[in-house]
Each structure stands twice: as C-alpha cells, then as structure tokens.
Design a protein around this nucleic acid. Structure first.
Length: 692
DNA sequence: TTAACTGGAAAA
DNA sequence: TTTCCAGTTAAC
C-alpha cells in the first residue's frame, strides 16, 4: 500500500539519480509545464492599465446567467480584447467561450478572474448587433447566448487568416433605371428618392404579378448605397437567394455583396460573414440568419415573402426574420421594405398601424400586365370533357397552353409529387385513405379497383372517413404523370419537371412545358408566357387555421413568375373567396379580412400570444410561477408533442392585448430565469409562434 | 474548480 | 448555544 501511494515528488527525486531516460524526459516536461504555468500566471498578474475590466457575455444558454460578467484584462491582451471579439474565460468549473461587449475602468466585483485567451481579434459582434440581440432576446423571452449563436456563425480559423477580397468600385447609381424598374408600383419613386437621399422610409410592398422582384430589390439597394449606407436583404430559401444574387450582380456589379447562407458550408459561410463584419462589403443578402448580419451603417432592410415559414427560426428563442429586421430598422434608423406577391397579416398590420406605408401596383399596371382567369373544376366539367378525367387539366387549359407555347415556356403547378393517381371522396374531397394503414388509395389501371399505395390492400367497399360518402372522384395526378400526359398532348414540346428532391432553379425563356410541385417552381428567363394552377382544391383541404393564407401565398408566388402580358389560369371553384382574391390580385384585401378574423379571435398580431410547453409537472409549476399582467388569459393546457424520450407533454397558451406584450414577455423571461436558477425542469416558451 | 453557504448533529 | 462536517450552490 505505502509503496503504491508514494508521493509524486518522491518519485521525481528518485528519477534524478537513477531512472531511465524516458522517465527523466517526462519529469523535465513536467517542470517545463510548471514553469510555463508560472510564467502565464505572472503575465496575468500584469493587468491592463487602461480599462482593465472586460464585460463578457458567456456562451451558456441558462437564462439566469444571461448578463455580462466582469473579467480582468491581462496587460498582454489590453489591445486585442476589444468589444466584439471572441474570448475564452474561466466560468465556474470550466472554460467557456464568450464575447467581450464592453471595457470598463472598474468592477463592482472583487477578485476578478483574468480572461484566458482572446480567441481571435476579429470584431464579430458589433455594438449594433449586440443591441439587436438584446432586444430579440427580450422580445422572445429567450437568452442572449442563444440569439448570438444564431447571429454569429461558428469561427473557421483558416478562413480568418485570408484577407477579404478588395471590392471593385461600384457603378454610379442609375436613378432612371431604378425608377423604370419600379414603374407602376406607387409610390415607389418617392420611396427610392427618400432612400437615395439618406432617409429611412418604411414600406409594405405588394408586387404585381410578373414583377422581377429581385431586380427591383437590387435597385432599391443601389439607391441606398448612393446615400453612403449599406443594405441587408433576407429571402426564404436558396432558390430566392440564387435569383437575388444574379440580380444584385447585374445592378451593383461584381463583388459588391456578400451571400450569407447557413447551408453554404462553414468556411464559405464564415468568409462571407467576415466580408460583412470587416466592412469590406456594404450589402448582404441571405436566408433567415442573415437578418443579424453586421452590415455597417445600415440604411435599408428588406424581407421578401415573409409568409414563408422558413423565415421562422427553428431554434430557441424562435425569432422570425421579419421581426428581427423590423426591430433592427427601428434601432438603427434604417429604411424597411417588406415585400411579396402575397401579403401576411403581420405585414398588413404594419401599414394599418401607420408604421409603414403601402407600395402597390397601380390599377393600370395590374390590368395591363397579366390576365388572371379562373376555370371551374366541377364534376359537370369533368363529365363534359373526357380529357379532364384522365389528366385534371381542363380543355380550356390545353388551349391556353397551346397558345402560350408559341412564345415561351408554360408553368403547370400541381400539388402532388410523383406518378401515382390518388383518389379522393367525390363529395367532400378528402383524399381517400386505406382503412388498414392510412396510405393513399390509388388507381393502378383503367378498370382495376382502388388499391393502397403503401400496403397493397385492395379496397372494394370504400366509404369516406370524413363525410361517409361512397363515391370516389377523378384521380389526383402527381407531377410526373401530368408531365407524361403533357408530352403526349403536345408532341414535340420539351417537358421539364421540378419537384422536391430534384428542384430546378431556372428554365430558359424558350417554349417548354414546366411541370412543378408547389414551392419547386423554376424561375423562367423573362418569365412564363402562361402559368396554370391545377387542383387548387387539394391545398384547401387541410384543417389548419392558416390553410387559405398559405395556399394563397403559394399560388401567388407561382402566378408571380408569369411574364408581363402573360396569362394565369386557376383551375378551381370560382366561388371561393381565396381564389377570388387571387384572381383579382387582391392579396392585401384578403390579409385585411384575415386580420379582422384574427382580431376577433384574439390572435396575433392584435394580441401577443405565447405558448409554454413542458412535461405536465413542469408546466403546472411554470404556470403557478408565471406573474401574468392583469387581463392575461391562459388557455389549456392541451396535449402537445411528446419529448424525444417519449415523455408526455402539455402546452398552454397565454395571451394579452398587444399593448401588454412587453409585460408578458418580461414575465416569461423572469419565469425562465427563476426556473433556470432553481434548476427546475425546463419549459419551452415560444412568443408569437407562426402556427398554433 | 472551489469558496461560501446551508443545515443537521454532536459536544458542551 | 457553539462547533464541526458534509453536501449544495454559484460561478466575475
């Protein structure tokens, strides 16, 4: 025992005399290490003379640790430890990453720990973005560390060593070209003038069908640059981003903008981020996380198609890119542009409250530019026209396609992917499901009975699960089958498909039939000569609160791809208000009606609402702890998705009038701090979630 | 990791 | 009541 537990020092003493070389080396190593530690300690003991205190936000998600901690700045780091740099600090038991947010002369706290290391001298957290992260964290009752993780991409050390490429001189602002691009949208010329002269106008922009919106955004950016300020544009996905990238290059010239996308890979993502952070470029475009891009002297923020759910962050605290940008526009006195072919209730609210003005197509432009028609999708038509039975493309549509093909490409938007023909109830249009496995019932051949597409069950006595009907209606055709039939109907015409998994970004402006599933529509060079929206009823079948709104947004985006002077044909029930709004291109009107419905139901944006989700015990506890402002309502709790480990969870909804929104989020923030400090089971808080 | 704090039990 | 010890907590 005694021999085994001998002190290390004794062993070291023995080694000096007799032990073999390897052990001696190790002892030397140990001594060198000890000497290095002493040297480091000595260096740390020398504290910076000016502002020896660094205020550091540590990268920990715990709500009660969401405040700056003071550290001593060693003299060796006096210069590098500037606000905005990444540092490593000792925090309790372990070393954690953090950001210096300020330097100070003194601290309230005695015996400060020294900063361990300045990870890099790059200023990645600018004061503006730090302030933005503050307000986003407060608005969403979340922790700043979580927000910063969304805002600042992971460091990529080798990329950091490269200098950012020099930016070529930008061409001078062409005010006439900008005005021409925006012609017909009113009052866009005033908006552009205001931007160019350094103002901060705010607008909600409804784009006319056939508008090359990316081009217009690029011109608005150019106007902002002309005032000596930077701009930031956020779009939902990489398809929009690619289009915008091309437009920016065309209008601003090569290398004038950075492209920020999380899925571009860590090196490229960080390289582009650094170009912005270093002030090498004044313009940034990107997907949702780009809303935090540290653009210098920000003059304009733009969000396109803000109804797309991709703009809602999936990670805590679940901020929406539109709201981040709008907060930013206020804080940095920048202009704001919220644009789309569709209109969200939230965007409509901005103009209703007077926060922003409207930019709309003039009536003349709307009428002359595109004709939008609707054709019935009733069983009567199906009887009359044998073609429709097979293909779901009515005869009237065939005529439009034929005419439009003479001058360019035609888009057919269909809601279903693949080939198989699924069936639906002919009375209520609920898709027919297999009674055994809930798979889709399909027709294998002309005379075959309906068969399940998943388990192969042959259904001979089907009855609709929703309405009890016995009739099956003409099949829902997938995009592959539609494409095949188009190829047969229009022999010699090129047929292109685009659907999830095989999305085509662009097609040439030459005659072709493009069959795409919803959201996968390629952009046609110069626009489509005609756009057909098929099987519109299928999108409306879902019992979601936002079904109509979302369907209208998706149709509007497809219709928006038409070229000026082109035609849009909607196949659907002309009596439906949502289709009427589409045909009249009155998405703002539809949003307004939706807004009053939501107001009556006390839903956002007129109310502020939050969900709290957790295990039954934790939720119950949280609701007791939550100090709600008077007038707040609590709904539920109702069953929610179980945890990843399968534990049951409940969700409660709390809501207040919008005027009390700040009180609600403060209470929720306090709740999270208390729960985190007491190490209670976590609950998830989501403020104004996109869906309920 | 570690100093400060808490609470409970033994000693006086 | 005081003192000691072990476990807990906060964390610069």
């Amino acid at each position: 025992m005694a021999v085994v537990s001998r002190e290390p020092q004794e062993a070291a003493g023995a080694a000096e005399l007799e032990l073999p070389g390897l052990v001696r080396d190790r002892v030397k190593e140990g001594r060198a290490k000890a000497a290095a530690t002493r040297a480091r300690k000595a260096a740390e003991a020398l504290i910076a003379e000016v502002d020896p205190v660094a205020k550091v936000l540590v990268d920990l998600p715990m709500a009660h640790l969401d405040k700056p901690f003071d550290y001593a700045v060693p003299a060796s780091m006096a210069e590098e430890a500037r606000p905005g740099v990444r540092v490593k600090v000792r925090f309790g038991p372990k070393d954690v990453d953090g950001f210096v947010v300020a330097r100070a002369e003194a601290s309230e706290v005695a015996n400060l720990q020294p900063l361990k290391r300045v990870v890099s001298s790059e200023v990645v957290l600018t004061p503006q973005v730090a302030a933005l992260s503050d307000s986003v964290a407060r608005r969403y009752a979340g922790a700043r560390a979580d927000v910063l993780r969304l805002a600042i991409p992971p460091r990529h050390a080798s990329t950091e060593k490269e200098p950012s490429a020099a930016v070529p001189a930008a061409p001078p602002f062409d005010a006439a070209a900008a005005a021409a691009a925006w012609a017909g949208h009113e009052p866009a010329t005033a908006f552009l003038r205001h931007l160019a002269s350094g103002g901060a106008p705010r607008a909600v922009w409804h784009a006319a069908a056939g508008t090359d919106h990316a081009d217009l955004i690029a011109h608005a950016t150019a106007a902002t640059l002309a005032s000596g300020r930077g701009a930031l544009v956020v779009v939902p996905d990489w398809k929009d981003l690619a289009r915008l990238d091309v437009a920016m290059t065309k209008v601003l010239g090569e290398g004038q903008h950075a492209v920020l996308a999380a899925d571009a890979g860590p090196a490229s993502r960080y390289r582009e981020f650094l170009r912005v952070a270093r002030g090498a470029v004044k313009v940034a475009i990107g997907t949702r996380a780009a809303a935090f891009a540290p653009v210098r002297h920000l003059g304009l923020v733009v969000v396109w198609d803000d109804g797309d759910d991709l703009l809602a962050e999936q990670r805590s605290p679940y901020p929406h890119a539109r709201d981040v940008l709008l907060l930013r526009a206020e804080q940095e006195q920048a202009a704001a542009l919220v644009g789309g072919f569709a209109r969200t209730v939230e965007a409509g609210f901005l103009s209703e409250t007077g926060w922003a003005q409207e930019i709309r197509p003039s009536r003349a432009l709307a009428r002359q530019r595109v004709s939008i028609e609707i054709t019935g999708d009733t069983d009567f038509d199906l009887e009359k026209d044998p073609l429709t039975r097979a293909s779901r493309v009515p005869r009237e549509a065939h005529e439009i396609i034929r005419a439009a093909l003479a001058t360019g490409p035609v888009l057919l938007q269909t809601p279903r992917r693949g080939y198989a023909a699924s069936l639906a109830c002919d009375r209520c249009r609920t898709p027919a499901r297999c009674p055994a496995c809930q798979g889709p019932l399909q027709l294998g051949g002309p005379a075959a009975p309906p068969t399940c597409g998943w388990c192969g069950h042959v259904e001979t006595a089907w009855a609709c699960g929703a309405c009890g009907g016995f009739g099956l209606r003409a099949p829902i055709i997938g995009e592959a089958r539609t494409a095949e039939e188009m190829g047969r109907s229009f022999a010699g015409v090129r047929v292109v498909t685009s659907s999830a998994g095989a999305v085509r970004q662009t097609v040439p402006g030459t005659p072709a039939i493009v069959v795409a599933t919803i959201g996968a529509e390629p952009v046609a060079e110069g626009g489509y000569t005609a756009v057909l929206l098929l099987d519109t009823w299928l999108l409306l079948g879902r019992p979601d609160l936002r079904t109509d709104e979302e369907a209208l947004r998706r149709w509007s985006n497809a219709a928006g791809l038409v070229r000026p002077g082109g035609r849009v044909l909607v196949v659907g029930d002309p009596a439906l208000p949502v289709l009427q709004a589409l045909v009249r291109w009155d998405q703002p009107g539809f949003a307004q009606r939706e807004a009053s419905a939501r107001q009556e139901a006390h839903l956002p944006p007129a109310s502020r609402l939050a969900t709290i989700t957790g295990t039954p015990g934790a939720l119950d506890d949280a609701l007791t702890l939550l100090a709600l402002p008077p007038g707040a309502e609590v709904l539920g709790p109702a069953p929610a998705e179980p945890t990843s480990t399968g534990d049951a969870r409940l969700r409660a909804v709390v809501r207040v009038p919008r005027s009390l929104g700040v009180r609600l989020t403060e209470a929720l923030g306090e709740l999270q701090r208390v729960r985190s400090a007491r190490k209670l089971d976590p609950v998830r808080v989501q403020v104004d979630p996109p869906t309920l």
